[in-house]
């Protein structure tokens, strides 16, 4: 009886709460046997977030000089030696000035003619850089940097942006001071209508626009201000098959007879399906070497078996320090097919 009343009473209490209407009202402690206490070690392992007030930041330090070494080994292949590369991801560094460091507003963001926006132009909180690099970098081996290495990489980025000097060491004890130098620290606006809470995070405004549902003679004429540029007509492949070949409409070109492209080489399709092309270009380096570079390097050698094993087991060192992860899901026969295809020049058609 006691057990019943204990679980029943909180249920009634909860049912009276204004928000408990859409779900069965169940007391907080009623889910007997569901879940278990998290251990302190588990919480420590997963609770890695660092907030803008630096709550959650672990103790540690790293110098610009140390950061440069880590950068060149683990970051530069995607982001460029100076964080400027636009090849794989958008540039990290550039577009900020000494004056921005003083004002906390990046002046180039006001310029409509300024090409592109780098991470350092946008980011307001140093915590964001630290937290993200710590949890998600390097891109193909996330969470493998030590805390000190993260400090060092952040210090190097700050140095590239001329926020800290060459001999600087960033640490948990001086990071709040460096925050005061962030070029876009005052660049965030919290006045808008698009935060779904009322918790005081933003100053809520009415929505930006106030269109009306006018039904007739709403304007004198409809003027087309922009049409599809010529290059964009073919940039997304043949449009004919992108609409179902029966029904109300057809894809453009569908009725004009067959203009089917030659099918992809099946081995190319296998490379695409197996995810190889994310890191390897056919004719250029992306994260790993281009297939053309691999074919050149092993030209005239009987390297197929060795390379197939490398594909399966992963490797590091031949093409730089970014490791190629082991492809454990790839069938042996597929690895052999792919290597043969790569060594034969990786034809796409």
């Amino acid at each position: 009886m006691f057990k019943f009343s204990k679980s029943f009473m909180p249920a009634i209490t909860l049912a009276l709460l204004p928000f408990a209407t859409t779900t069965p009202s169940i007391a907080a402690d009623k889910y007997t046997g569901v879940g278990r206490a998290a251990t302190p070690a588990e919480i420590q392992a997963w609770d890695i977030d660092v907030r803008p007030d630096f709550k959650g930041l672990p103790k540690g330090s790293g110098s610009v000089e140390q950061g440069q070494v880590i950068w060149e080994n683990k970051c530069a292949s995607c982001h460029g030696t100076f964080g400027e590369s636009n090849t794989v991801f958008t540039p990290l560094v550039g577009g900020t000035t000494k004056d921005d460091v003083k004002t906390g507003n990046v002046a180039n963001l006001k310029r409509a003619d300024y090409p592109g926006r780098t991470t350092m132009m946008k980011v307001a909180s140093l915590s964001t850089l630290w937290d993200y690099i710590h949890r998600a970098m390097p891109w193909n081996a996330p969470k493998t940097l030590s805390d000190d290495e993260v400090y060092a990489v952040v210090a190097y980025l700050l140095n590239l942006s001329e926020i800290v000097p060459d001999d600087f060491t960033l640490s948990d004890s001086n990071i709040r001071e460096v925050q005061k130098l962030m070029p876009n620290r005052n660049g965030m606006s919290l006045k808008h209508a698009m935060w779904p809470g009322k918790s005081g995070l933003v100053t809520a405004t009415p929505p930006d626009t106030k269109n009306t549902a006018c039904m007739s003679n709403c304007k004198p004429a409809a003027k087309v201000s922009s049409t599809l540029p010529d290059y964009a007509k073919t940039s997304h492949g043949e449009l004919a098959p992108q609409t179902r070949p029966f029904g109300q409409t057809r894809g453009q070109g569908a009725a004009a007879g067959s203009s089917a492209k030659p099918a992809h080489n099946p081995d190319y399709a296998l490379a695409e399906k197996s995810g190889c092309l994310a890191c390897h270009g056919i004719n250029q380096k992306i994260v790993g070497p281009g297939f053309n570079e691999v074919a050149d390097k092993y030209k005239g050698q009987d390297a197929a078996a060795k390379l197939a094993t490398k594909v399966k087991n992963g490797g590091v060192g031949v093409w730089g320090s970014i490791p190629m992860p082991a492809q454990t899901d790839l069938k042996d026969s597929d690895a052999q097919t792919l290597v043969k295809w790569i060594l034969s020049g990786a034809p796409t058609q």
């Binding site: 907030r51 007030d53 709550k55 006001k110 926006r117 946008k122 993200y132 998600a136 965030m188 995070l201």
Partner: peptide, 30 residues
């Protein structure tokens, strides 16, 4: 008790306005 300023709400998914300010924590799809 405070917002987190994560990468995808502090560097991306922020709206650049004509005055050079970025709106942060814009979340509702209008």
């Amino acid at each position: 008790d405070q917002p987190y300023g994560t990468k995808d709400e502090a560097v991306h998914y922020i709206d650049l306005m004509p005055d050079g300010q970025h709106r942060q924590y814009t979340s509702v799809q209008e």
